[in-house]
């Protein structure tokens, strides 16, 4: 059963002379536990699509239905709350809170959720071990490499036990070894936690790991392939 259904999703920007159809009538569905790459050339609408999927940007029309609820029918306050409890985000530039340590960055999301202290501690430790940073838990982001920061970002994204994780170009700022390492971790967590991962990418190494590849061009789905690995 699909956990996300995208129906006739459109995002049109009104330019000064010409309107830009960044997302042009996309219909897709995503199953639990998918490991999906959204690929396509620059300007094909990958990031806009992920933003609409994550409730960060308003669509011009269409629906994003998660577990039977169209997230765009939720009010602004409820949508923020929905993101907190159901969606994990991994950003290209890591976007960790610089004044918090690695473990605090992970704990922070769970504290916003109001989870019990002990549960927060256990989950943080579990995730920091899973991303191989249990030794660097007390370090602030400025003391971590790019790859390590992105691993903390992955742990943070999973901390809330979301229904799905959206990752926008997660390896774009990483060297080959860090990127491989991050992908291995994401793949392992995807399997262990059965959480859907949807990531936009240009990176062939990421595409190689994906079990489903959706190709966008000019805001439209050009190909949707399921890869048997």
């Amino acid at each position: 059963m699909s956990i996300i259904e995208v129906k006739n999703l459109e995002k049109i920007y009104d330019g000064s002379q010409v309107e830009v159809r960044a997302v042009d009538g996309i219909n897709l569905s995503f199953e639990r536990g998918e490991f999906t790459a959204i690929v396509g050339p620059s300007g094909s609408g990958k990031t806009t699509f992920l933003n609409l999927l994550g409730g960060l940007d308003n669509p011009t029309s269409g629906e994003v239905v998660v577990d039977g609820v169209n997230i765009w029918d939720l009010g602004a306050g409820k949508l923020i709350d929905f993101r907190l409890h159901h969606i994990g985000f991994v950003f290209q530039a890591y976007n960790l809170i610089p004044v918090l340590t690695a473990e605090e960055n992970v704990e922070f999301i769970m504290e916003l959720q109001g989870r019990p202290r002990q549960e927060i501690r256990n989950r943080t430790l579990e995730l920091m071990k899973a991303v191989g940073l249990e030794e660097r838990m007390k370090n602030r982001p400025s003391k971590l490499s790019g790859g390590q920061q992105q691993r903390v970002a992955v742990a943070r994204a999973l901390a809330s036990k979301p229904k799905f994780v959206l990752a926008d170009e997660p390896t774009a700022n990483l060297d080959s070894r860090s990127a491989e390492n991050l992908l291995d971790i994401m793949e392992k967590l995807n399997k262990e936690e059965n959480i859907t991962f949807i990531f936009s990418t240009h990176d062939a190494r990421v595409v190689k790991k994906a079990r489903r590849i959706i190709t966008l061009e000019d805001g439209k789905v050009m190909r949707d392939e399921v890869i048997q690995r």
Partner: peptide, 16 residues
């Protein structure tokens, strides 16, 4: 701006 944007994205509400 970017940090505050990230906080809004991950679900920190406006009051917080």
């Amino acid at each position: 701006i970017r940090e505050i944007g990230m906080l809004m994205a991950v679900g920190m509400n406006k009051i917080r």
